Computed example of a mutant assay.
Amino acid sequence: MSVEMKADRITSWHANPSKPEFQLPEGAVDAHCHVFGPMAQFPFSPTAKYIPEDAGPDELFALRDHLGFSRNVIVQASCHGTDNRAMLDAIAKSDGMARGVAVVDPDISDSELRQLHEGGVRGIRFNFLKRLVDNAPKDKFLEVASRLPRGWHVVIYFEADILEEMKDFIGNIPVPIVIDHMGRPDVSQGPGGKEMKAFRKLLDSRSDIWTKVSCPDRLDAAGPPYLNFVASVRPLVEDYPERVLWGTDWPHPNMQSVRPDDGALVDIIPQLAVTNELQRRLLVDNPMALYWDEH
């Protein structure tokens, strides 16, 4: 059965996001966003668990400008599988203002990895969410991680309930690591909760583990104004200021029942990073170091 016939297409983003009141620092980077299609040019994977409406580079860069960001890090979405063409196309259209994180077949050749580097990719993503991927072979992931171009890192997406079983795998990755959305802890437990404590222990295990303090819309079941998220995450930003990143997560895969307001998400940033210095580290210095090290 074709992808087009498998499921109705999903719209998961806010049609008219508000203009944030918070003025982002000059050079701010949206360090976690995606592009979908357009499907006519870049078909979705036959194994995709969801089929979104098109959300291409024109829409992404318009949102970037509306919110006040300067740059984007485009993360390959699971619906495109290991076909990174849509992400690479968006980078190519960004005039140097976007970088990418790819999803690759672990058997990818070294020459193909170099081609991705030339296209603006600076990392690969390992997804362990069972509802999104069918297979996550840790041994093969470690092998490809050992062959990454210089300066690349690994992005890992998992949920808090498998953190303990992920520790050995994470400890054996031979390059810097970025954890998506803090491993999705239960923020209702507060900053001293079991899952946040476990995540802090992981950060303390290696000095080269970074994390994205993003997605209150996914992690805070209480909803706006995301007070549980703010209370749990602000101490993390203050205690690990040199290893935190932030992103919109636009176009918010599989959030069709909520459709977060991206302007409102930006306005949470000064509640997480409460000083100008912390804001600059979170939004400029840290992502630039990972993705535009030539600057």
Results as ranks from 00 to 15, higher is better:
Glu4Gly: 15
Lys6Ala: 15
Ser12Tyr: 04
Ala15Thr: 13
Asn16Leu: 11
Lys19Thr: 15
Glu21Ala: 15
Glu21Ile: 11
Gly27Ser: 07
Ala28Trp: 03
Val29Thr: 13
His34Phe: 07
Gly37Ile: 04
Pro46Ile: 10
Pro46Phe: 07
Pro52Ile: 04
Asp54Arg: 13
Asp58Met: 12
His66Lys: 15
Leu67Asp: 00
Leu67Ser: 06
Phe69Arg: 13
Arg71Gly: 08
Arg71Tyr: 12
Ser78Met: 02
Ala86Phe: 10
Ile91Phe: 05
Ser94Pro: 03
Asp95Lys: 13
Ala98Leu: 03
Val103His: 06
Val103Trp: 12
Val104Gly: 05
Val104Trp: 06
Val104Phe: 01
Val104Gln: 03
Asp105Arg: 08
Asp107Gly: 12
His117Trp: 10
His117Asn: 12
Gly119Val: 00
Gly120Leu: 01
Lys130Leu: 12
Ala136Glu: 05
Pro137Ala: 09
Lys138Tyr: 08
Asp139Ser: 13
Asp139Val: 06
Phe141Asp: 00
Ser146His: 02
Arg147Asn: 04
Leu148Gly: 05
Gly151Cys: 00
Val155Arg: 15
Ile156Thr: 09
Ile156Arg: 02
Glu165Asp: 10
Met166Glu: 03
Lys167Asn: 11
Ile170Asp: 02
Ile173Glu: 08
Val175Cys: 00
Ile177Leu: 14
Asp180Leu: 02
Gly183Asn: 05
Arg184Val: 09
Pro185Thr: 10
Ser188Ile: 11
Ser188Val: 10
Ser188Asp: 14
Gln189Gly: 14
Gly192Ala: 10
Gly192Asp: 14
Gly193Val: 08
Lys194Ala: 15
Glu195Tyr: 11
Arg200Gln: 15
Asp208Gln: 06
Val213Gly: 12
Ser214Thr: 06
Leu219Asp: 02
Pro224Phe: 07
Tyr226Ala: 07
Asn228Ile: 04
Phe229Trp: 07
Ala231Pro: 05
Ala231Gln: 09
Pro235Phe: 04
Glu242Ile: 12
Asn254Val: 14
Ser257Met: 13
Ser257His: 14
Leu272Glu: 01
Ala273Arg: 10
Glu277Ile: 06
Arg280Leu: 00
Leu282Val: 01
Leu290Thr: 01
Tyr291Met: 00
